[in-house]
Design a protein around this nucleic acid. Structure first.
Lengths: 341, 341
DNA sequence: AATCAAATTGCAATCGTTTGCGAGAACGTT
DNA sequence: AACGTTCTCGCAAACGATTGCAATTTGATT
């Protein structure tokens, strides 16, 4: 059961007693070719189910119409919504998408960047691996092909970046807690210099300051791995304090859900005694009891926007691409974990 | 800021006063080339950061080392774990992966199959769009390039398929419910002729029969869209019956979670009054209270296995590829929703 | 009928790499 | 010194498509 060979321009040309170039032009509606031959060529092409070898086309034009995407973890829900947006926009614009997972491994990340450029993708979309320390490899890529970053970015890399306004989003979330009457708001964040965590923390601080609330380091908790388990663990610490908080802002839904689980276990009333707000609007946030208030990040839009700017750079390389940081609007979704009638 | 051109064999050849072929052979450790020139070539290549144009290579060898993947929905958790497996195995074997979403749209699906073959991927991995009625387009592809299907498959397509044993998995789940003493087990399934739903239903029936339990059509409920909302809706129907079930088997975690939400609302004790078992081991299943018993489908393994067989077909096209259906083992995870000490 | 312009078509190069074959050089054998 | 091997290397074709330019045909004009 061997596979049938694709038919080429040459095949058509031979069968029609024409030159390859004439056949090519006939199929590309070049004005030079007389209508009758155009007719002959197109009918035979249809009959034989001719379809141009895109690979050969790409090879000649030095344009692959392929975008490379590198993300830390494809199975992360927020990431997958971004990918969805990327796929949609790319397809709409006639691009194919190669996806790779860096698994938060910096070495792998550079390897992937290299194979991608080596392979000849027209541009790369990149969400940095966590704790990416050296950006020199990325900078290398930058003067070879267009690059747009999203979600996990670094200001050390001069390229267009699509992000959400972490600081503002966190500010809004915390301000909401203040507005419902909370005065002692804890935060659960990451220790490592995570791009997002730091910005969200800044938003937290800003909200407290603007509302003249004291900042108490005892209720500013950090963890290396911002997981459900650690969210629960840190919440246990918070509720065993002599002066426990009346609200918890977790910079991740998972951690927030861990918090709720801990509070539920000790029958602490949410949101009356302690309110909880998370970040991401993951699937889980509506599953947990009570439903979690959280910041919605429009992944789809981020993906689409990233592709839009990347293709702009690809198709207009001459115009000096103004490097910009695009901030996608988030929205606070208020659910039972912070809702008071 | 124009991008720098990649350097080619020609460049190296000119600079070394050698022919392109010699340079090529030198870099590919061809025995014909004398050690001293190999030396000269390799050092210059390193110096100039030469890396072969993979696209040109592919073009010549007619081997792209690209696999195409088409799935209905990339943001579905189970699907994304499969993709993870696919990416891992593919990378390990030196293949790149192009991913497309059919969005359960049959027309899009065929379009994508066509662009992929037209582009020249070495093989395709396909999970069928729901309600795919006509498989003729897929059959068309089948005699052009290697194809392996997974998860959503059809027995009308003669190719290697990687699936889980839906029937057996469902059988085990229902038998488990019987073992903990349940005698009146409802099922929530899909109406449409979904490949998976029917098989799981068959497993349900088999378990009841083997244990001599009566089959009551009143507690066999179906829905077009097997969602959380519909799971809740149908459960409401079940608990308002004069003779309600003492267990619910939902063929999807989402529906099962909907069931739990409905039961919780009416303060029906889980699992004492009504036990619940789902299917998929999604993230949500540990978030809901009580934690959901469910069937774990090893997505990662499915993905890896699919790639393994696909590459086998690609690299040994002569040997008559024995078309086989590989069933990946599932395991029942027992949690609080069906646990009795 | 001769000439010229316009309409059609073909030649050949090109993209970057690999590879069969042949050519020339170096070396050893008699 | 003549011949045959063995080493090295370059030529040119090939993958499939596009395209500038030249070549050919056609038709029109005088």
């Amino acid at each position: 059961m061997s596979k049938q060979r694709n038919i080429t321009l040459k095949d058509l040309a031979k069968e029609l007693n024409l030159s390859i170039s004439t056949v090519s032009r006939a199929l590309n509606q070049h004005p030079d070719i007389k209508p009758s031959t155009v007719e002959r060529v197109t009918t035979l092409a249809k009959q034989r189910h001719y379809s141009p070898n895109l690979f050969a086309k790409s090879f000649r034009s030095r344009k692959t119409n392929i975008l490379g995407v590198i993300v830390p973890n494809i199975a992360h829900y927020f990431t997958s919504t971004i990918l969805k947006g990327i796929l949609e926009k790319a397809e709409e614009k006639g691009y194919r998408v190669i996806i790779s997972e860096s698994k938060n491994n910096e070495v792998k990340q550079t390897e992937m960047l290299q194979t991608m450029t080596q392979f000849g993708v027209d541009g790369v979309l990149l969400a940095l691996a966590r704790k990416t320390t050296s950006v020199t490899d990325v900078l290398q890529i930058l003067n070879r092909i267009p690059l747009v970053m999203f979600d996990k970015v670094s200001d050390k890399i001069p390229c267009t970046q699509i992000v959400i306004d972490d600081k503002e989003a966190a500010f809004n979330a915390v301000e909401h807690l203040i507005n419902i009457g909370k005065k002692r708001i804890a935060i659960i964040k990451e220790t490592e210099n995570s791009f997002n965590s730091e910005k969200r923390f800044a938003g937290y601080l800003k909200a407290l300051k603007e509302h003249n609330l004291p900042i108490d380091e005892k209720i500013i908790l950090s963890t290396e791995d911002i997981s459900l388990t650690n969210g629960r663990r840190l919440t246990n610490i918070l509720i065993s304090m002599k002066n426990p908080p009346d609200a918890i802002f977790a910079i991740t839904d998972n951690a927030a859900i861990g918090a709720i689980k801990a509070l539920n276990k000790f029958k602490i009333k949410i949101p009356e005694q302690i309110a909880v707000v998370g970040f991401s609007n993951s699937m889980n946030s509506t599953i947990i009891q009570p439903a979690l208030s959280t910041v919605d990040q429009p992944g789809n839009k981020i993906g689409k926007t990233a592709v839009k700017y990347l293709i702009q750079e690809i198709e207009k390389p001459n115009e000096d691409v103004s490097i910009k940081t695009v901030k996608i609007k988030t929205s606070l979704i208020i659910r039972d974990s912070s809702f008071t009638a």
